[in-house]
Design a binder for these strands. Structure first.
Length: 479
DNA sequence: GATGAAACTTAGCATTTCTATT
DNA sequence: AATAGAAATGCTAAGTTTCATC
């Protein structure tokens, strides 16, 4: 609103937005009712746009660009209780866009009547274009698609760093346990924080300003975010975490900890009140500085990658039964993936259609069971008929029916596995960990060992993204 | 040490596309 | 061929990390 409008409108709850809402509902309804031809036409248009703007040439190789469309104007929502919710996100004009391109490359033309803010040739960064967004004043970048060589190499590097941590994690753990009894408060706090980051896969948690939603990570935990329970459900020294993390997703967990950790936390909280930092002597910068001294490339987030991938490997070996069929094995894989998602607190809201699709699935299962019952009955009948005759045709029919029963039973098993998987996955998101935390070489090696086609666990895009790991499938890789 | 710019990864949800079923 | 439901993809916000400057 303008300042004039703000004088008139002071309480949004007194505004009636029904007309606006109806307008957009109508728009979306209209779009839904487009004819097949119109939809085809739109699809073609989009393909043309992708062809023209969706690729770039990097070191002579054609690469897919990730986000080549400028973000359109609109109302900023933000996640959680965001102080800037509802602000107008302005349209970006070419005059606000910087182009980063090879020295000798042809610079794309700005839209007619406009100029780019600047054209640079910085080959030390990966972005192709950038602009400053008006809500937070932060930079937005046009970068390459995850399937690109550049991103793939970066991804591989990330997992190599995590693998390196494996060799020194024992020492690091020993060190931070020592720090729990240090004379210096700073070191005690660092020791406990690092223990949380390692054990619970918490994010680093840097300080944020008042202009963003109030969320925290490990280093920014405050007094009110934990509660100490000397006893809780027959366990001792339990820490209750309750805070909003990235994207305002709630982290709520009861964790039994070592006595020394428990006592230290009591110490850190002494004399403090809600609003005070739990780790007042610790910042992400100092923590990362310390970590980088322990191992080249080590930062707080490496622990998340490391523990996620280790959990996957560990759970895969525990859950996979070599004698089971492919569907059962895929369920085991998903369960291992799920263990990681739970560790990393990757939640999702229950899909709107969850109950309905669950019911549908149950109906299918019931139908299948009925079909099996009937087929079995027919098998039985045929069996008695076959016994009393020498009819080859009848015998063939009998064998065929038996095969059908087997097929139906396989289908039933698959449905039941799907239902179990779906139910267990109701409020858990697997995608994030699969895409960002799990070393694909573990997955690929598991597929090979257990004769599960890679397609069962990675879709097309994922296979493209992890092409570098799939290529290594010939070698037996152990994390 | 504090602060902010810069560049990159990670995140959940809405929309779009695909697939199976009728 | 139409349609519903599932799966894939797009979108862009929200993190982490590093580096420069005071």
């Amino acid at each position: 609103m303008t300042s004039e409008e703000r004088k008139i409108i002071k309480d949004l709850t007194k505004c009636d937005f029904k007309e606006m809402h109806a307008y957009f509902m109508k728009k979306s309804e209209e779009r839904k009712n487009w004819t097949k031809e119109q939809k085809q036409e739109l699809k073609k248009e989009n393909e043309k746009i992708l062809e023209q703007y969706g690729y770039c040439l990097m070191d002579g190789h054609k690469q897919r660009v990730g986000n080549f469309k400028i973000e359109p104007p609109g109302l900023f929502r933000g996640r959680g209780d965001h102080p800037k919710m509802g602000k107008l996100k302005k349209r970006i004009m070419p005059e606000g866009v910087i182009i980063n391109i090879g020295k000798d490359a042809k610079v794309p033309e700005a839209p007619e009547g406009h100029k780019w803010q600047k054209v640079t040739h910085d080959n030390k960064v990966s972005w192709l274009a950038c602009w400053v967004e008006n809500i937070q004043g932060s930079y937005k970048y046009v970068m390459l698609n995850p399937t690109s060589r550049l991103k793939g190499e970066k991804d591989w590097q990330k997992y190599e760093t995590a693998r390196k941590l494996k060799d020194c994690v024992k020492k690091i753990r020993g060190d931070y346990e020592q720090d729990w009894k240090s004379k210096e408060m700073r070191l005690r706090q660092r020791g406990v924080a690092l223990y949380f980051i390692d054990k619970l896969a918490l994010r680093a948690g840097h300080e944020k300003d008042e202009e963003t939603a109030d969320t925290v990570g490990c280093c920014s935990l405050r007094f009110e975010h934990i509660k100490l329970h000397s006893e809780w459900e027959d366990k001792e020294n339990v820490v209750e975490f309750d805070f909003l993390g990235k994207d305002s997703v709630r982290y709520w967990n009861f964790v039994p900890v070592e006595k020394k950790v428990f006592k230290n936390l009591g110490l850190f909280m002494k004399g403090k009140q809600p609003g005070d930092d739990l780790f007042d002597r610790l910042t992400t910068t100092s923590l990362n500085k310390y970590l980088s001294e322990l191992m080249d490339g080590l930062t707080a987030k490496v622990f998340r990658t490391y523990n996620a991938s280790m959990t996957l490997q560990d759970q895969l070996s525990k859950l996979t039964e070599p004698e089971e069929n492919v569907n059962a094995k895929v369920l085991s894989y998903n369960r291992a993936n799920r263990a990681v998602a739970i560790l990393c607190n990757h939640q999702r809201s229950v899909p709107k259609t969850f109950d309905k699709s669950m019911t549908n699935l149950q109906n299918k299962i019931a139908e299948k069971k009925k079909a099996i019952k009937e087929a079995k009955k027919e098998v039985k009948e045929l069996k008695t008929q076959v016994k009393g005759s020498n009819d080859d045709k009848l015998k063939k029919q009998f064998e065929k029916k038996k095969a059908q029963v087997q097929r139906l039973q396989d289908q039933l098993f698959k449905l039941e596995v799907t239902a179990t998987d779906k139910e267990e996955n109701k409020e858990i998101a697997l995608g994030t960990s699969k895409l960002n935390y799990l070393d694909p070489r573990i997955t690929v090696a598991w597929c090979k060992k257990h004769e599960v086609p890679v397609e069962k666990v990675y879709n097309k895009t994922q296979r493209e993204k992890f092409a570098w790991a799939l290529d290594m499938a010939e070698k037996d890789f152990v994390f």
